[in-house]
Nucleic acid binder design. Sequence first.
DNA 1: ATTGAGACCTGTCGGC
DNA 2: TGCCGACAGGTCTCAA
Length: 277
Amino acid sequence: MPELPEVEAVRRSLAPFLAGTRIADVDVRRPDLRAPFPRRFRARLTDQIVISLTRRAKYLLAELSSNETLIVHLGMSGSFRIDAPNDAVDTAGAVDRHDHVVFRLSSGALITFNDPRRFGLMTLLTPAQLARHPVLSRLGPEPLSPEFDAAALARACRGRKMPLKLALLDQRIVAGLGNIYASEALQVARLSPFRRASTIATPSGAPRDAAHRLTEAIKSVLTTAIDRTSAKYRSRSSRFRVYDRDGEKCLRRNCGGVIRRRTQGGRSTFYCPVCQR
DNA sequence: ATTGAGACCTGTCGGC
DNA sequence: TGCCGACAGGTCTCAA
């Protein structure tokens, strides 16, 4: 499920339990998620100290004392559950059908990875593998970093014929947006999801006004979502301006449009046909 | 090189 | 109640 804000919320909830803590043991309850676990997965994790837990795009990165990095992607349905050391013994570590990996920490805490759809990913990379990783090394800028600005976005969209919304979902252009916040950012920026990505840049790749609006919209939508998102990112209720609001009135003042839903790249796009051009 | 379609896997929801 | 199709917040691969 998670996009950048939800992954960031997961990171913040896990970091206090993981940072500086030793992994006493790992229970790997199946051979794979989206991809097989790496060889000697359990052995390479056991007795490692977690130096830090960071996030890049929608990936969590746990730096280990061995110098390897544990990479975790939550896919569509991945989540972590924390059983603190003082939790009741009879509930701590209770196993659900979709509990795939259980980390037992030296503190006594249990961190359980649950993922019904198994689109998630867990792997271990050496520093060299991390630097040359075909996906991670090609990720676009973090949308909340200073490097992500209108110039960078326009440059990345220059000459792109794909619809703007699909460009926002391309993690090489900007890293961490998913289907919800791509739609949301386009609404805030008053831009149509269907216009070609190239139209936010001049032919030479300089930012047009649309690129400025879109960059600011992406930053504000994500920042707001992070502030609001807790470890439970389940509720899809009325926090959105267009997402899942098919048929409802556009929230923009004096717009009067009705939110519509259309399929792009096999996924639902929500937008206001009146104010998004 | 870029773009779109289909695949991966399970759960849930609405309609009949 | 049961069955069936549509859909779900993400990537990856393949082929045009």
